[in-house]
Amino acid sequence: METLEKTHTKTIRRCEFSKCDTMIATVSFDATTCIWDKGGQASATDAEWDLVVTLEGHESEIKDVAWSPDGELLATCGRDKSIWIWLKEIDDQFECLDVLQGHTQDVKSLRWVPKTRALVSASYDNTIKIWNECNDEWLCTQTLDTAYQGHESTVWNLACNQEGSKLLSCDDTGMILLWSIETCDSSVELKLVSRNKVPSDFSIYSIDWASSGLIAIGSADNSISLLQLERSEGGAAGEEADKRGNEILKLVKEVKQAHAGDVNCVRFNPKDPNLLASAGDDELVKLWRINDILS
């Protein structure tokens, strides 16, 4: 175990391993992003992590970070309402490719759509935006607000399934929306599949989708819940609905008082979907075995 310290000067909000596991990006309320590299010996367990570069540019707190599926790009977003896209160059240097300004409030979360270079962002302005790469820039091609049956409160977090065919978004009133990811003229679009209210009215701060298909959420009522998709019985019928699948979310198991405070983050182990990590306001990180929760 190694502590990466003495770099960020304020709260670290999020971190993410690069696709090849050799780098970590950490984003902080100090408005910087740090890129850490796992020294020379990539396989050694006692490898040392070195700070490679600090990316500046955001005006204020950074809220989320995501590596693109091809590992080339890094996206960050934050309270300054902007999304920054960085290109990783050969010599571990990063060049700013684009700064996306479309949200009218704090951008809470962002995810790359698997197998594409399209980006989805979620904000305190209650909207979800889709950004597609077009020539040398990213353009907002879709804004999902209430006019599109979107969220009516802060959208806190996003999660895609492994295939990149579906996306979940969760909000401040405990609403989870299921979207189908469709490609139209090589441009990614989201279409609403179902609006789900499980299990309570509390804010849902974090959502993650395991390769096994299981979904975890972390909530303001200190709980962690496990959910799964299920075909709706009396859902919308018709050709459109059939094509997208009229699926809804079903509660599998709720762990009450998983933390002694808000659950801010839940993430499955990408290689072992039986392992779940959670972080809470009780200043604890907990590791859970899904089998144990379910039994």
Binding site: R79, D80, K81, S82, V99, Q101, Y124
Partner: peptide, 16 residues
């Protein structure tokens, strides 16, 4: 205000 250029808008954090 919303019409100002990116640099000015970015420096104006009015959400919080």
């Amino acid at each position: 205000e919303t019409s100002f250029s990116g640099g000015v808008r970015l420096a104006d954090v009015s959400d919080f």
